[in-house]
């Protein structure tokens, strides 16, 4: 009985508090919308993402890439600034691989990784990085380094939904691998008004 009374009191207190402070901050927001692009567009694979106005601390993560059968798998790795990529040599044969990139934002040569090895690289700048194995011709991969974890990979233009976003000022943007197109970024302030049914336009460069 005491427990029930305490629960009722607590609920009432919370309701009262909510009534007194109707604009208490909500810490996780959703951003929804759709990609607008001309009809018959051949654009595939679009990364919709949010970029914070002020850099935010994020716990770094490690993403693995397989090298089995002389292929980088997945061929596309999407990470956030400060994250690490670990290339795992999981070949069934005794075969070495080399991993290097000459991208301006991150050039590296991780040397040779024999079967069973794990070679790592941390990425500190946002952008696109192409990497290769200097020995095997089909081994090409791409890393996209985003400014935040709030993104969605779309196979084609359509609806998107980004969840769990802290309030603050953000810029909605997209990376398009079809180089003829670019996104027209949208500035958002999350916290008071909802950011629903937005339109992110992709236009020809």
């Amino acid at each position: 009985m005491k427990t029930l009374r305490f629960t009722l009191n607590l609920t009432a207190s919370l309701l009262a508090l909510a009534g007194l402070l109707p604009s208490l901050p909500v810490y996780a927001h959703s951003v929804t919308g759709h990609i607008e692009i001309e009809a018959q567009s051949p654009v595939k694979k679009i990364i919709v993402y949010l970029s914070p106005e002020q850099p935010r601390q994020q716990q770094s993560q490690t993403y693995q890439v397989s090298q089995k059968d002389t292929r980088f798998n997945p061929p596309l790795t999407i990470i956030t600034v400060g994250d690490k990529v670990q290339w795992v040599n999981d070949e069934t044969r005794e075969i070495d691989h080399n991993i290097y990139s000459l991208s301006e934002i991150s050039h590296f040569d991780l040397g040779l990784g024999p079967k069973g090895s794990r070679l790592e690289q941390t990425f500190s700048q946002p952008g696109e990085i192409n990497y290769y194995c200097s020995a095997h011709k089909n081994m090409e991969g791409k890393i996209v380094v985003l400014p935040s974890r709030y993104y969605q990979l779309l196979e084609q233009a359509g609806d998107f939904k980004l969840d769990g976003i802290p309030e603050g000022k953000w810029r909605l943007n997209a990376i398009i691998f079809h180089r003829r197109y670019k996104a027209e970024p949208v500035n958002l302030t999350l916290g008071k008004s909802p950011a629903q049914n937005l339109t992110l336009k992709l236009v020809k460069r």
């Binding site: 075969i95 080399n98 040397g111 040779l112």
Partner: peptide
């Protein structure tokens, strides 16, 4: 040419190998 570490690995391998 391939990078130096790989060239060295190749030299050390058998006459017929995965390379």
């Amino acid at each position: 040419q391939a990078n130096s570490a790989f060239r060295e690995k190749y030299r050390q391998s058998d006459t017929s190998s995965v390379y």
